[in-house]
Design a protein around this nucleic acid. Structure first.
Length: 793
DNA sequence: GCCTTAGAAATACCA
DNA sequence: ACTGGTATTTCTAAGGCG
């Protein structure tokens, strides 16, 4: 019989020394199915020396690895060159690395390749099976002997065939969040109970599991497990669950003599590659992994993300800090607040997952990593899996990951801005500059010509400055991949133009084009990453060299046309706007340099500081665009950011530096009267390494140490929020974690002189306003007159 | 021992 | 744990001075 299914999760099992692929999916009628494929052998490649005949060598291999299941002589490409290999199949995936290790030492074997590709990924790639995609397959039904939690179990009788259909089936989504009770810092699963588990489903159910007065959490964890098993979710989602909740629940269950069983086969959640927690038969999603998609959110916590995405209708909901959980639980009235806080967290989870699920599924589908892997995989690995998928298609062997030494190379050009205010400035942008350079000049690991090799000049593209050479023919690996991505994205976007933005199809396509964009844009960075399997420094170095060449040529052409260039960075040129000239120029540049350039933004008015990468402009649609300045930095107190934003508003919209200066004076007066919110004084900084590893004393590290002294554990990547308090000595001697300090302790003058003033001055000094003038009280007649004298009345 | 200062460390941004 | 280019603040140690 033939069925169609949408792939949710994949794992493998070893039964009697043989391997089985388990495909978890949803069929076209909405049934949950498990399809077991027993017909796929794991394998790797043995690359043989040039003087060895692989056909004869097969016997030699069998002698050394008697347990191999099958040997095959195969012609492949490796970095574009034809190579002879023996494809070595084993019955048991665990034997792959052992066998490869033996063969590597064997004379006549150059190397073994692809022994580091996991069996389940091998299956997906070789059979063109894609997660979050529809397939059809011939199957026979078999008895559900293991009591697996699905409607039907099948045995595969063919390999799956990919279908076009893009839309996902109706999935069952369950979100949850937990609250633990601890009086001595971070909760420890061996002694601190889980007191609240809040659950919600996409069927609109909400449920809260609360401990009794003895804080006995065994019953609630059991009840939670039962709830999950009854609801049978396809996706379980939370925030920070890979690092926190799952391991805590697992450990806690051990302490309580329970088994955490929430999957479809009665095994415990287990940590897998990239640190994601795998729940067999379901997709475990950690929304924290998608927080990076929203760079505007500086402190990446659930509440901030939900607020940014506008998913919680309730504004000003009470936020309970971790340090307060125990106190809130112990207080009758506050306990209600804590309960609501927990339930709201789960509601936030449901809201955020709604906002990112389409994207996550499309990313999974595009790069080929299962939904639960793709979030935790770093950008480099997402790109790499996409490349591996393509390599298989064209018979290119996947290189091993080799630890490479870091060798820096030159990057892009940034022009010095013409500081001050300019009217009518257009930005000419090269479209996807690096990917298009890589396509145009065929920059790729398999087209690179090493310096030793000689070529005819007409055979190769030679990069300016660095002189790296790349064959013009045939099309390189990167060129093919990138051309495909760019083409697909253009197709999607033109299709979207014909659709209603409210339709479900539109949303899916939008998620798809975003996923494609992410992978396209990361490809240059991948090429220059020493950890990449296909790392070839000259590829990245040539891309930036062509980039510099291109932008410098374009600037030259702009100037020759009589237009003035006021700024430029990497792939953009800011010019005084003259509509007809710019249209003509774009065409000429495109023609001459072979790369697409187009006017992107148009600023009615733009302000440049003296510094590069820091400016603000008023767009023709009325929006204010702020770049690089304190307003958009996450490591400045909100007071400074708010003041600077307002100053920019006044300066750019009303063109009145005087009014802006007056505003700053008044704001400083407000701060000094402590009339600004305490939370606006918090400064957040990231711990980029373990606390002990810092070479110098830093304020956020000192604050982290204080938190640690009270039992709160912090890890690399955590943001530490602190305030500056009154006292003497260095700054790092005058900070406290914000939840440990009171408003009375705060050193207001620090915020005036080191936060608000610098942020305001950064803008206003260009207009002749000095710090002294900003500090002068508006009531002081003399100072006001100074300002008036300066600007006139 | 105190003060100034140049350079390193640290962070977060732009493209 | 994708790249290089850049701005900025704070810390730290060296050097000058008394």
């Amino acid at each position: 019989m033939r069925i169609t299914f949408w792939l949710l999760d994949i794992n493998y099992e070893i039964k009697n020394n043989a391997s089985e692929i388990w495909l978890w999916g949803i069929d076209s009628s909405g049934k949950r199915v498990l399809i077991i494929d027993r017909n796929f052998l794991p394998y790797f490649y043995a690359l043989v020396e040039d003087d060895v005949d692989p056909a004869e060598f097969v016997e030699e291999i069998r002698k050394h690895c008697p347990f191999v299941a099958k040997l095959e002589v195969v012609e492949c490409k490796f970095f574009g060159k034809q190579v002879k290999t023996v494809k070595v199949h084993c019955k048991d995936p665990n034997e792959i690395s052992k066998c490869a290790k033996v063969l590597r030492k064997l004379e006549g074997v150059k190397d073994c390749l692809e022994d580091d590709i996991r069996y389940s990924m091998r299956y997906l790639i070789d059979n063109k099976v894609v997660p979050c995609g529809w397939h059809e397959i011939d199957v026979t039904e078999e008895a559900n002997m293991l009591g697996v939690q699905v409607d039907k179990v099948f045995e595969a009788k063919s390999f799956p065939r990919l279908l076009e259909k893009a839309e996902a089936p109706q999935l069952r989504v369950l979100g949850f969040s937990t609250i633990c009770y601890s009086r001595e810092g971070s909760p420890k699963p061996d002694r601190n109970p889980v007191i609240i588990i809040s659950v919600a489903t996409n069927h609109g159910e909400e449920k809260q599991f609360l401990v009794d007065e003895n804080k006995n959490d065994k019953p609630i964890i059991e009840a939670f497990m039962n709830y999950v098993r009854n609801f049978e979710p396809d996706i379980i989602v939370g925030y920070g669950v890979n690092e926190q909740d799952w391991s805590y629940l697992n450990e806690r269950c051990k302490t309580l003599g329970l088994r955490l069983s929430i999957d479809r086969v009665e095994t415990e959640p287990h940590t897998s590659v990239y640190g994601h927690v795998s729940i067999t038969g379901r997709a475990n999603m950690d929304l924290f992994d998608f927080a990076d998609e929203f760079p505007e959110v500086k402190v990446k916590n659930l509440g901030n993300l939900a607020d940014y995405l506008g998913v919680m209708k309730l504004k000003n909901r009470k936020i309970v800090e971790d340090v307060e959980f125990a106190d809130y639980w112990d207080d009758k009235e506050n306990r209600e607040i804590l309960k609501k806080f927990s339930m709201d967290n789960t509601r936030c989870v449901m809201g955020v997952v709604e906002a990112v699920l389409d994207f996550a599924m499309q990313l999974s589908n595009l790069v080929g990593l299962p939904l639960d892997h793709v979030g935790t995989a770093a950008v480099g690995f997402r790109v790499e899996w996409f490349l591996i998928k393509h390599a298989q298609k064209i018979g290119e062997l996947v290189p091993k990951r080799i630890e490479q030494p870091y060798r820096p190379y030159a990057g892009a050009i940034v022009l010095n801005p013409e500081s001050g205010v300019h009217e009518n400035v257009a930005v000419l942008d090269f479209k996807s500059m690096y990917p298009n350079i890589m396509i145009t000049y065929n920059l790729s690991p398999d087209t690179y010509v090493p310096p030793k090799e000689s070529t005819q000049p007409c055979e190769v593209y030679e990069a300016p400055e660095v002189k790296h050479r790349f064959r013009k023919e045939p099309a390189g690996f990167y060129k093919e991949v990138l051309s495909y991505l760019i083409k697909v994205r253009d197709e999607i976007r033109s299709k979207m133009k014909t659709m209603s933005p409210d339709s479900a199809d539109y949303r899916v396509l939008d998620a798809r084009q975003k996923a494609v964009k992410v992978i396209t844009n990361a490809s240059y960075g991948y090429a220059g990453w020493t950890g990449a399997r296909w790392y070839i420094k000259p590829v990245a170095e040539a891309a930036t060299a062509w980039g510099r060449h291109t932008i410098l040529n374009a600037i030259e052409m702009v100037k020759n046309e009589g237009l003035s260039v006021v700024y430029g960075d990497t792939d953009s040129i800011f010019v005084k706007y003259e509509a007809d000239k710019i249209e003509k120029l774009s065409r000429e540049i495109e023609e001459k340099l072979g790369l697409e350039i187009r006017p992107d933004k148009i600023y009615v008015r733009i302000f440049f500081t003296e510094a590069k990468k820091r400016y603000a402009g008023l767009l023709s649609d009325g929006r204010l665009d702020i770049v690089g300045l304190e307003v958009i930095r996450g490591d400045w107190a909100a007071v400074a950011k708010k003041v600077q934003e307002k100053v920019l508003e006044i300066v750019l919209r009303e063109q009145s530096p005087k009014k802006a200066a007056k505003f700053v004076q008044e704001f400083i007066s407000e701060i000094r009267q402590k009339r600004v919110a305490y939370r606006d004084l918090i400064i957040w900084k990231t711990l980029t390494k373990p606390v002990e590893d810092y070479q110098i004393k830093a304020s956020h590290v000192e604050a982290a140490k204080m938190l640690r002294a009270k039992g709160w554990s912090l890890t690399v990547g955590d943001k530490v929020g602190f305030v500056v308090i009154v006292g003497t000595g260095r700054l790092y001697e005058r900070v406290k974690p914000y939840m440990f300090a009171t408003y009375d302790e705060v050193d207001i003058e620090y915020y005036v002189s080191k936060q608000v003033l610098p942020a305001a001055t950064r803008i206003l000094e260009s207009f002749g306003v000095t710090e002294e003038q900003l500090l002068a009280s508006k009531l002081e007649e003399a100072e006001t007159r100074k300002l008036t004298d300066f600007f006139g009345t």
